[in-house]
Computed example of a mutant assay.
Amino acid sequence: MKLRTTLSALLITVLAACGGGGKGTAIPVGEAIAPNFRDADPVNFKGQKPSRYPVHGIDAARFQKSINWGQARRNGVNFAFIKATEGGDLLDPGFKSHWRGAGHAGVARGAYHFYYFCTAPEVQARWFIRNVPKTKGMLPPVLDMEWNPFSPTCAHRRPEASVVQDEMRRWLKIVEAHYGQRPIIYTTPRFYKENKLSGFRGYEYWLRTTAKSPREAYPGQGWRFWQYSATGLIDGIQGEVDLNAFSGSKAEWNAWMAARAAQ
């Protein structure tokens, strides 16, 4: 696939509206604003600190019941990964509202799927596709791979690493073909190690590590996004929210958006 989108095509001026409606400040999609965040439980990361990265954002789900997306955007929420689906039949009740609000506010938005090991990957891929619209400028879809200790049916189902990787490839192939974007993989240190994902190549990673830096938690693993806090405080968002950093400079963010956002 030839990705020749220019930055100018992505910098579409939209209304940074309050919660997706009303009047606000016009902010181009993709224009990086410095984070004006706080953290209820900050960590003193050794060596590799989130503050060294200028482009930050959030991930959101039904737990974020009230987001004034326009205000959040003006406080440095440059991107948002929004939970869309789980398994083969669960749609996050906050997805549609968050998707619409982020889009109206000029936040670069992407959707993620929480994977279940009790449903075939083909069924889960089709469910994600059914619920997440192909939208110009959207970030690559995300496959959220972590053990699920809460599901009444899937909590104790933990296949061997070879099975996990096979199911991942099947989901990823279907979703990439539909959206024309190679998905990103989100994971946790335990899941990454137990399923030998250091050898799962060809994909960008979004890594969760809120106690150690990515260099410490995932030795040798490259990453595109780092989820560094689950206790972020941002004006415009009620309650705590996950904080994430992009791996490069503002110029690298612009280049990545030009190459990876949907046509």
Rank of each mutant, 00 (worst) to 15 (best):
I184E: 00
R190Y: 06
E194W: 08
P183Y: 01
M168P: 02
W171T: 12
I185D: 01
T187Q: 00
L172V: 10
K173Y: 03
K193F: 09
K193S: 13
Y192S: 02
E176Q: 15
G199H: 14
I184N: 02
H178Y: 13
M168A: 08
T188G: 04
K173H: 08
R169F: 05
Y192T: 09
E176H: 04
E176M: 06
R182V: 07
G199R: 15
W171I: 12
R169H: 09
K173R: 15
I174F: 00
G199C: 11
M168D: 01
W171C: 09
N195R: 08
M168N: 01
Y186H: 03
L172P: 03
G180C: 10
Y186W: 06
K193V: 14
Y179E: 09
S198L: 10
R170M: 07
E194V: 08
R190H: 06
E194F: 08
P183G: 11
I185T: 02
K196S: 12
G180Y: 06
K173A: 13
Q181L: 13
F191G: 05
F191P: 00
G180V: 06
Q181E: 11
E194A: 08
Y186P: 00
R169Y: 05
I174T: 14
P183F: 03
R182D: 02
A177N: 15
P183H: 07
I185G: 02
V175W: 01
I184M: 09
R190C: 00
H178G: 05
M168Q: 00
K196H: 15
H178S: 09
N195W: 11
K193P: 01
S198A: 14
H178N: 12
Y192W: 15
E194D: 14
T188M: 11
Y186F: 09
Y186D: 03
E176P: 00
K173L: 07
L172N: 05
Q181D: 06
H178C: 02
L197P: 07
L197Q: 09
V175C: 04
K173E: 13
L172H: 05
Y186T: 06
Y179G: 07
W171N: 04
W171P: 03
N195S: 05
K193C: 03
K193D: 13
T188L: 12
G180H: 11
Y179I: 05
N195D: 07
P189A: 13
K193H: 12
P189C: 14
P183C: 12
E176R: 10
K173S: 14
H178P: 04
K173D: 12
R190D: 08
N195P: 04
Y179C: 06
M168G: 03
G180K: 14
I174H: 04
L197F: 15
Y186E: 04
K193M: 10
I185N: 03
I174E: 14
Q181Y: 03
P189V: 15
L197N: 10
Q181P: 01
N195I: 10
R190N: 05
